[in-house]
């Protein structure tokens, strides 16, 4: 396979779908801002793992980043539990600190770390095909396809196998605990999944836009269905659609691919927000108008 455009397109779709799946549960838990925090702090995990391994392509970098993601969640919840500050303020205190430490480390050791903050935050999908995966010296394709492919596979399997557990722990943590499904365990499992996905995706699309792909398709799907399983499928579908259309438009306009994918994600949401059959703005306004009319009629009859 030696068609960079096709490879980029494949990576775009895989990233979008892999983000959308754990994103569904993040959205249902109202934890999107935690994802935003995680996507920033994994940078510190990567930097620290790099200092240990001194190898930028080491798989330990993913491990370090995932651990840092979980640590972020833990620290935020620890602060929040003291009741000294609100949940939002806890997030706002923890992630800038960890992120600042990461940036300071990078700028102080910039000579030895070939990581720049730009590429972490912004990403560049167009460069992804340059990093090849070689097996016994044979080029078998862009590395990002395989890395993200494995992460997507794990996400799909996790969502299928632990569907019931994720569902009950999200909807009713007290019942989950009473029935022996530790909500804490499931919570941290999900957060690990989010961290790993973010690590895999940030090189391609940048950490800030990972949030767009984790939150956008699920909240769009949320407006379209009342079933959790359908919400998962629709989210994945919308994610893939955004990946394809976003990439094509980015090619046409010669602009940031990930940025364009985010813009398409936003436009698709806006469209659904207005015209969704049951929960859309248009239906809602029509319903309110009807209710008002009926109310007026009832009032008239009464008088």
């Amino acid at each position: 396979m030696n068609n960079p455009a096709l490879e980029i397109q494949i990576i775009a779709v895989i990233v979008a779908v892999a983000c959308a799946l754990p994103g569904v549960f993040l959205v249902l838990r109202g934890m999107a801002m935690m994802a935003d925090a995680i996507t920033h702090t994994i940078l510190l995990g990567i930097v620290m793992a790099f200092f240990v391994t001194e190898d930028l392509s080491s798989p330990y970098l993913i491990l370090g980043a995932a651990l840092m993601g979980v640590f972020t969640v833990w620290l935020t919840e620890l602060l929040h539990q003291t009741k000294l500050l609100g949940k939002d303020a806890s997030i706002g205190v923890v992630f800038p600190l960890l992120f600042s430490i990461a940036i300071i480390l990078i700028s102080r050791y910039a000579g030895s770390v070939h990581l720049d903050t730009d590429s972490v935050l912004l990403g560049e999908l167009a460069f992804a095909p340059f990093d090849r995966l070689l097996v016994f010296g044979v080029d078998i394709g862009a590395k990002a396809i395989y890395v993200m492919g494995i992460i997507l596979l794990i996400a799909v399997i996790a969502v299928i196998v632990f569907f019931k557990e994720l569902q009950i722990a999200t909807f009713d943590p007290a019942l989950a605990a009473a029935l022996g499904f530790s909500p804490v365990l499931i919570h941290y499992g999900l957060m690990t999944m989010v961290s790993v996905t973010a690590v895999g995706a940030f090189e391609a699309v940048g950490s800030i836009l990972v949030v767009a792909f984790m939150v956008g398709p699920p909240i769009t799907a949320y407006l379209l269905t009342n079933h959790l399983k359908k919400m998962l499928v629709i989210s994945a579908g919308i994610g893939a659609f955004n990946g394809i259309v976003g990439f094509q438009l980015a090619m046409l306009a010669d602009v940031s691919i990930a940025g364009m994918m985010a813009v398409v994600t936003g436009l698709v949401f806006l469209l659904v927000f207005i015209i969704a059959p049951e929960k859309g703005l248009y239906t809602g306004m029509k319903r309110r108008k009807m209710q008002k009319k009926e109310f007026e009629k009832a009032l008239k009859n009464l008088l």
Binding site: L28, F171, D172, H227, L228, M231
Partner: peptide
């Protein structure tokens, strides 16, 4: 105690 807007 639960979120009744949950898709279920």
């Amino acid at each position: 105690s639960v979120d009744w807007d949950f898709p279920a």
